[in-house]
């Protein structure tokens, strides 16, 4: 069963996944070239001083890419389900509809995690000559925090597609905007640590909220 759902989701998103990976790795390379140029011009000591003391993180500009990618992935995965109400086709497969929908979301979260992890590996390899492992681990927390918020964005986008009422869609869109705005309060190293549990709770709540929308999808939203 899981194989079937994952197969369908893979077919739907394989091209998007590929170009997303290319964009993420491309952006990481661009960042690497930019940092190298900065180091050449300003010297490595100044670069470090910026990172350590001024908290002027060099990778900050690429962080919004994660929620953006997650939102696009959500659209690519669930727009085809919405056209012609094809979601009925997916849900009527011989399996519990909640298991089916949770598996679809599971695929999305797994694919995004894989994508983001690959990006981080490339990031770590490229910057291993400039930053140390300890610093990289501290930076990883900022990445993880953005990943979690990206997952929340993805889930909110998916819920917008599953929700059958305009009111729900509007409420979800506002929620997505509000939750994403939290990320841009002050993107600095270390200060995101305490946001990780919050983001994790948000992702969990949104994941299980799906069952409410699936229930609503089935109980009366279907109009002739």
């Amino acid at each position: 069963m899981l194989k079937g759902v994952f197969y369908k989701e893979y077919i739907k998103t394989r091209r998007t996944l590929l170009w997303m990976l290319l964009v993420l790795i491309g952006a990481t390379f661009a960042l690497f070239l930019f940092v190298n140029h900065e180091i050449e011009v300003k010297q490595v000591s100044f670069f470090w001083f910026q990172q350590m003391v001024s908290n002027n993180l060099f990778f900050v500009w690429m962080l919004p890419v994660f929620p953006l990618m997650a939102a696009i992935f959500g659209v690519v995965q669930f727009l085809p389900e919405t056209i012609g109400r094809r979601f009925r086709l997916s849900l009527f497969m011989p399996e519990n509809e909640l298991v089916i929908s949770f598996s679809m979301l599971g695929f999305g979260l797994l694919a995004l995690t894989l994508l983001f992890t690959l990006q981080f590996v490339v990031f770590a390899v490229l910057f291993s000559g400039i930053i140390t492992l300890i610093w990289l681990l501290a930076a990883a927390k900022v990445f993880v925090c953005f990943w979690l918020f990206s997952f929340a964005t993805y889930l909110l986008i998916v819920l917008i597609f599953i929700a059958q009422k305009t009111t729900y869609r509007m409420v979800l869109a506002v929620t997505a905007l509000v939750q994403s705005s939290i990320l841009f309060i002050k993107p600095q190293l270390n200060i995101f640590d305490c946001l990780i549990p919050y983001a994790a709770i948000l992702v969990m709540l949104l994941f299980f909220s799906t069952s409410f929308f699936i229930h609503h999808y089935k109980t009366g939203s279907y109009e002739l």
């Binding site: 409420v171 709540l205 949104l206 909220s209």
Partner: peptide, 17 residues
């Protein structure tokens, strides 16, 4: 139960926001 739980979860998201 899952549907009820889902409703509570969505309520919590709205309340937090």
């Amino acid at each position: 139960f899952v549907k009820y739980f889902g409703r509570i979860c969505f309520l919590m998201v709205l309340i937090i926001t």
